[in-house]
């Protein structure tokens, strides 16, 4: 419990820092009043806008004002869409979440079994094959893999739709493209962890007590081996949610990443700020979850 509270406090602190950075980044990226007033606005217009939006107040006041609104779910209004930023993010985030979750499931269910099998017989054919898969995954750019899939499964075989987000089928190819990119790292960490743990004394004890090989492998070895994998996967998942702009663009899945990208190109700063803040908070939440999961996996981490 003490551990949980400490982690939670730490997460809140990081969130606060993120909010400051998110707020500050917008201020140093240029004059907001000029951006809001639009191209060709006169200096009077700009000054009027500045006063209207409260941008003439001292920065700390502006920050506290912004933070209190943000805490109530008010992230401002989009300059381009003219709708609340929170509403825009609320529309787009589920798409990113669905894509990220599917990609994560694909990556983990491919990487962990492969890593375990590779660790069982290091340098065997299976291990080499898994290594080859990992090298290909790391070497091949995501967009290239995505285009390859579109050509094969979309254009030739016509099994899967190549754009849009109308049905779950739209998510298959982007999830695979995004998940495959995360697979090699997870696989290699699982493999390394399993090889290390399988050589430890308590595994020998488990075998010396006659426990079945399945029990030794999954109950005794895997649980200890996946602890670093959990942390890595949390970071990878965060990346999949926020960094999937390329994939989202290729498959015309308009998620949060895509929203951030078009808003940057349109200088729609409140939206950029909002997306950055929300994704950063999700990142913090994921790290917190990973810490808690690890504490559950390894009781030694629960001691302070």
């Amino acid at each position: 419990m003490g551990y949980f509270l400490k982690r939670l406090g730490l997460a809140l602190l990081v969130a606060l820092v993120v909010s400051v950075i998110s707020f500050g980044a917008l201020r140093i990226s240029g004059d907001i009043a000029t951006a809001i007033a639009g191209e060709g606005a006169s200096s009077e217009d700009i000054e009027f806008t500045r006063k209207q939006h409260g941008l003439d107040r001292p920065l700390p006041i502006q920050y506290l004002d912004w933070l209190s609104h943000a805490l109530q779910g008010d992230l401002g209004t989009s300059l381009y869409f003219r709708v609340p930023v929170a509403e825009l993010i609320g529309d787009r985030l589920p798409i990113s979440l669905a894509l990220g979750c599917l990609a994560l499931i694909f990556a983990v269910s491919l990487a962990v079994p492969l890593g375990v099998v590779a660790a069982l017989k290091p340098n065997s054919i299976v291990d080499r094959l898994a290594l080859w898969l990992a090298v290909v995954g790391q070497a091949m750019p995501t967009f290239w893999f995505a285009l390859l899939m579109i050509v094969v499964f979309g254009a030739w075989l016509r099994w899967l739709p190549i754009s849009g987000n109308e049905s779950w089928k739209n998510f298959i190819m982007p999830a695979i493209a995004l998940g495959y990119y995360a697979t090699p790292a997870i696989m290699r960490l699982t493999r390394a962890g399993m090889i290390e743990v399988l050589g430890l004394d308590y595994i020998r004890t488990a075998r010396a007590m006659g426990l079945r090989s399945g029990t030794v492998l999954f109950k005794h070895a895997l649980r200890n081996a996946v602890i670093p994998v959990v942390s890595l996967t949390a970071v990878q998942f965060g990346f999949m949610l926020g960094g999937s702009i390329v994939i989202e663009s290729i498959f015309s899945l308009h998620g949060a990443g895509h929203l951030a990208w078009i808003s940057i190109s349109r200088s729609d700063l409140p939206v950029v700020q909002g997306v950055v803040l929300v994704l950063a908070l999700i990142y913090i939440l994921l790290t917190l979850l990973a810490d808690l999961l690890n504490a559950w996996l390894d009781p030694r981490l629960r001691i302070e």
Binding site: R204, M209, G210, L211, H220, R223, N224
Partner: peptide, 23 residues
Amino acid sequence: GDLRGNSMSMVFQQPMSCLNPAY
């Protein structure tokens, strides 16, 4: 495996690392 831990068993040298820390 049916014999190990059952009719023949073993005690090891390293008490600090011979038990699984997770259970």
